[in-house]
Design a protein around this nucleic acid. Structure first.
Length: 424
RNA sequence: GGAAGGUUAGCCUAAUCGGUAAGGCACCGGUCUUGAAAACCGGCGGCUUCGGCCUUGUGGGUUCGAGUCCCACACCUUCCGCCA
């Protein structure tokens, strides 16, 4: 949520932000509603003031034994006026609120211009794509040869866009989860949390998934519950409607959860393998910081996610999302893209964002400095990393000509010392 | 799923027969003091077009007027049932 005062004071700044996002949001309609609301509100308050004065007079008259019948009769007119204005105000409020909740965050000045993912500049590259002496297979083929990925049975169980990991494949994902959580909690200072995998609508609104992106989510029937599309939702909402102590900040949380996404609108994209699934595992990093710290914290968070790829010796690059590709709630985002030999391309494996006060304002997450008034925190999060895609990257980057896969050294302690996954 | 009790500001707590939210703690500023504590004075939810308006879990209703009465819902606690 954008501060409505900022909207009134600097509408041109918001207008420019919307242009940079290539957003069709109707800002003028919003400003018009706001002006209208303030007019109605003023009139309503005048009416209420009159009512309060008359009411006090009636109480006074009754106390001193006088007759208040005439005053009570006169109140009817005021009451009617108030009722009419209240109805008008609540209609305006609803329309205004609806629009405010669908207004995206302002891209930071450092966010590059651009319309789509094609315009995202590469910030840095780590490692080099391996030169294969044979034709590299993709993870679907490798998984089939090793007997560790069974997409046919996954389809039988649940349909398209689900996967079934078996044996060393299941162990690989479990090992990656533990490896990532250990790295972030032991070396990067994050506190591990295991949150609910279902949340209510208030939580989804707090981080920005609702009201605009309901069709991307899975909803539980017969309850106000949704399956989380990312741990960002439950973990950021941990401190919803709270006032934190400045001394507590920054707060770092790391969480493993499965993530559930309907992937509406992505028909035909990445239909092969486990790149794009309705359910996938992810280790997520979430930070709550003071406003002046958040940009520095974004760099650190991104570095924390990168460290996972470095330890696993997987080549990757970092891109900055351009304004047109930026997510709804984010002020700035770095994507980490891992090299996938099976696709001969870099593919997203982590997304690290600073949401500034956008989520904090929606979810009312504040902090208080020594003796000061409550201020909104800044929230950040990033994948550290998407587990399924990391498994894909390992299978494809570390494959051998005979179809076996060499486990990265850093991961072996988490796989009971296993060095190589060989065909069964 | 059933039953009972509960929800008042950062925290704690009061409000009779319905009359317009009292007080304490913590915190902030001031007086006093070498400094601190104590004491005393003031402040201590949000909005404001500076006139005021709003705020007792949420949303309705009754009423000239609702923390208080009625209805629905949410959440918390305890008990019963079911359950890993």
């Amino acid at each position: 949520m954008i501060d409505i005062k900022l909207l009134r004071a600097e509408p041109d700044r918001i207008r420019r932000a919307l242009q940079r996002r290539h957003s069709a949001f109707d800002l003028d309609a919003l400003l018009e509603l706001d002006a209208k609301r303030r007019g109605v509100l003023y009139e309503l308050e005048q009416g209420r003031a009159e009512q309060n004065r008359a009411s006090a007079a009636i109480a006074q008259a009754k106390k001193s034994g006088g007759d208040a019948a005439e005053a009570i009769e006169a109140m009817r007119l005021v009451k009617e006026k108030i009722a009419r204005l209240e109805k008008e105000l609540s209609e305006i409020d609803e329309a205004l609120n609806q629009r405010m909740l669908t207004l995206p965050n302002i891209p930071d000045d450092s966010v590059p211009d651009g319309a789509s993912a094609e315009d995202n500049p590469v910030i840095r590259v780590w490692g080099e794509p391996r030169q294969f002496a044979f034709e590299p297979r993709d993870h679907v083929e490798i998984g089939r040869m090793l007997g560790i990925l069974d997409f046919d049975r996954a389809a039988k169980l649940s349909g398209a866009r689900f996967s079934l990991s078996v044996g060393a494949g299941a162990l690989l994902e479990r090992a990656l989860i533990n490896f990532m959580l250990d790295l972030h909690t032991r070396e990067h200072g994050y506190v591990e949390v295991l949150p609910p995998f279902m949340v209510n609508s208030d939580s989804m609104r707090g981080t920005g998934q609702l009201p605009k992106f309901a069709e991307d989510l899975f909803r539980v029937e017969g309850a106000d519950l949704w399956l989380i599309p990312t741990a960002e939702v439950p973990v950021t909402n941990i401190h919803r409607d709270e006032i934190l102590d400045a001394a507590q900040l920054p707060l770092y949380y790391a969480a493993y959860t499965p993530c559930f996404r309907s992937e509406a609108g992505s028909y035909g994209k990445d239909t092969r393998g486990m790149i794009r699934q309705h359910q996938f595992n992810k280790v997520e990093l979430v930070k709550f910081t003071a406003p002046e710290e958040s940009w520095n914290e974004l760099e650190k968070l991104t570095a924390n996610a990168e460290e996972v790829l470095r330890r696993l010796e997987l080549p990757y690059r970092v891109v900055a999302l351009c304004a047109g590709d930026l997510g709804f709630s984010a002020a700035k985002t770095y994507d980490l893209e891992v090299w996938l030999p099976g696709q001969n391309a870099y593919r997203e494996i982590s997304s690290c964002s600073n949401f500034t006060d956008f989520q904090a304002r929606r979810a009312s997450i504040r902090f208080r400095r020594e003796g000061g008034k409550p201020e909104f925190v800044h929230t950040l999060n990033g994948s550290g990393l998407a587990v399924g895609r990391t498994a894909v990257a390992i299978l494809e980057n570390c494959q051998n000509e005979d179809g076996s896969v060499t486990i990265p050294k850093a991961l072996r302690p988490y796989m009971n010392g296993l060095e190589r996954i060989a065909p069964r």
